[in-house]
C-alpha cells in the first residue's frame, strides 16, 4: 500500500515539485516498481520538453536507464534469494 502511494506520488510530483524532488521520489518508488522511472521520465518530457531544449528526450532516456538497472538489480536479488 505504501509502495503504491509512493508510486502515485512520484507520478503526480512533476506537476507540483522541482525536478530534484521528483528524482528522489522516483528513486524511492523504483525500489518496488522499477518501471516508474521510465514513466516519470516520459511524463517530464511530455510536460516540459520542446523543440529548442535539445535533440534527445533526456528525462525519458535517463528514466529508461534507471528502469533497466532496477530490473537487473531485482533479478539479481531474486536469484540470490532463491539460491540461498
Amino acid at each position: 500500500m505504501t509502495a503504491r502511494f509512493l508510486a502515485i506520488l512520484a507520478l503526480l510530483a512533476p506537476f507540483f515539485f522541482p525536478w530534484p524532488y521528483v528524482v528522489v521520489l522516483t528513486g524511492i518508488a523504483l525500489i518496488r516498481y522499477p518501471v516508474i522511472a521510465f514513466v516519470v521520465g516520459l511524463e517530464l518530457d511530455a510536460l516540459y520538453a520542446s523543440r529548442g531544449t535539445g535533440a534527445l528526450p533526456l528525462a525519458t532516456l535517463l528514466g529508461a536507464l534507471a528502469t533497466a538497472v532496477a530490473l537487473l538489480a531485482h533479478r539479481f536479488i531474486r536469484a540470490h534469494i532463491s539460491v540461498t
Partner: peptide
C-alpha cells in the same frame, strides 16, 4: 497489475505527447 497500470500510463503520456501535444 499495478506495474501494468504504470506502463499503460506511460504509453498514454507518450501517445498524447506525440499524437496530440496540444491536448496534453
Amino acid at each position: 497489475s499495478f506495474a501494468a497500470f504504470l506502463v499503460a500510463i506511460g504509453i498514454f503520456f507518450a501517445l498524447l505527447r506525440f499524437v496530440a501535444p496540444s491536448a496534453f
